[in-house]
């Protein structure tokens, strides 16, 4: 395993995209990075640009306005990449399924590697989701 491939497993860089979630999943993602759960001890770093990321965390049921932005962000993440759908909205669209403005769920638009369900999922579950995704694609 080369140094780049090894670093990808040792320190996955994460980009978080809100595609219309209620902010419940988003605060749990931030909670997963703060002292109690501390995903940074596993080398996870939350980055500000999708171009720097290995892992794309997607929350929300993909609203019509966010759809083109979501696709653009997805394309900006360099290969190889993993997509983690965080929350029930991102995984299945419920309870917003059938709404006029909802284009999701996420796997209707881009391929998803790991689904983390829950409304919202606990921070431990989000950390496990990231670990599973990294193992699956880069491990």
């Amino acid at each position: 395993m080369g140094i780049v491939a090894r670093s990808r497993v040792k320190s996955p860089w994460i980009f978080h995209l809100n595609t219309g979630s209620c902010a419940g999943c988003d605060i749990e993602i931030v909670a997963a990075l703060t002292p109690r759960y501390d995903a940074e001890r596993l080398g996870c770093v939350l980055v500000g640009s999708p171009r720097h990321a290995d892992v794309l965390l997607v929350t929300g049921p993909v609203t019509r306005q966010m759809l083109p932005r979501f696709i653009r962000v997805y394309e900006q993440v360099p290969e190889p990449k993993v997509v983690v759908a965080v929350g029930t909205c991102a995984s299945s669209g419920s309870p917003f399924l059938g709404g006029q403005m909802v284009e999701g769920p996420v796997d209707k638009i881009v391929p998803v590697d790991v689904y983390v369900v829950g409304c919202p999922p606990r921070p431990e579950a989000i950390v496990k989701g990231i670990v599973t995704a990294v193992k699956k694609r880069f491990g």
């Binding site: 049921p61 309870p95 917003f96 059938g98």
Partner: peptide
């Protein structure tokens, strides 16, 4: 505004 518009008021009527 409008990027998180999910149409909740419309959904509630159904």
């Amino acid at each position: 505004l409008g990027h998180v518009h999910r149409g909740i008021e419309g959904l509630a009527e159904n």
